[in-house]
Amino acid sequence: MKIFRSALLGLVFVGASISINAHATDASITKSVSPGSMLVLPNGGTRMSQFGLISSDFPRGTLPKRKTLTSIEWQTTWYPEGEGETLELCYFRPYSRTEVGCRAIQPNSSGTINDFNNQRFDNGAKVTIFHRVNGGRDVIQPVGQDIVTFRYTY
């Protein structure tokens, strides 16, 4: 009976140490980019802002840890001289050329997308914001930058 209690007590301590070390850490990475000048042709124009992640974006010592996306916060610029501007935010898993999915967002606005929660997130992941216009002058300029904040756990 004494051996059984000692073994049971040992299992309780092992279980306690596992649960203490198993909690996740929340983190975020914010990036900003200007989509740049847009050439508007008779059928419209497109520009994009890309937010790719590299190893130096992550805290030291976390590269080997598994990371999971929890949300993407965004703030967009716009092309005031463009006509019928639409935007789309697309998420790409690390080193993938195919997006997980894309969501329509609004120009000159901000918000949070939870559609890609629990997706794999790491070095090589990226978000692309596409700006599209139906018409406008020959070359148009954005009035600011697009900003993306990746929220994740590891």
Rank of each mutant, 00 (worst) to 15 (best):
D115T: 08
K67F: 11
Y91C: 01
P94H: 03
S109V: 07
E99S: 11
G111C: 03
D146M: 04
R66W: 14
E85F: 06
F92Q: 00
I147R: 13
S96G: 06
W74V: 04
K67M: 14
S110C: 08
N117L: 12
R132E: 15
N123P: 08
R120M: 14
R120F: 15
I147D: 00
I72V: 09
T112M: 10
V100Q: 06
F150H: 05
S96F: 06
H131N: 05
D146V: 07
Q141V: 13
C90K: 03
I113L: 13
D138I: 13
N123T: 08
F130V: 14
R103W: 02
E99R: 07
G124H: 04
N108G: 09
A104I: 06
F130I: 12
N118T: 15
I129L: 03
D115K: 08
F92R: 03
G82Q: 00
W78L: 09
R120L: 14
V100W: 06
I113S: 00
I147E: 08
V148T: 05
E83F: 13
N134H: 12
R132L: 12
G136L: 03
T128V: 15
Q75T: 14
T128K: 12
G111D: 06
C102F: 01
E99N: 09
I129E: 00
V139H: 13
K126F: 09
R120A: 15
C102D: 02
N117T: 15
Q119F: 11
H131D: 01
V148L: 07
I129T: 00
R97K: 02
E85T: 06
L69P: 05
R120V: 15
F150T: 04
F121E: 07
Q141D: 14
T112L: 09
Y95P: 02
A125D: 05
K65N: 15
H131S: 03
T70Q: 13
V133M: 06
P80C: 13
W74E: 03
D115W: 09
G84E: 03
D138R: 14
G111W: 04
I147G: 02
T128L: 10
I113Q: 05
E73G: 09
F130T: 11
T86M: 07
P94I: 02
G136M: 08
P107K: 00
G111R: 05
K126E: 08
T98P: 01
I129R: 00
S96A: 10
N118P: 11
R132K: 15
A104W: 00
T76M: 07
G111E: 02
N134K: 14
V100D: 05
P142Y: 10
Y95V: 00
N114V: 11
T77P: 03
L89H: 06
H131K: 04
E99W: 07
I113P: 00
H131E: 03
V127D: 01
K126A: 08
P94N: 04
G111L: 05
K67N: 11
Q106V: 08
G111T: 06
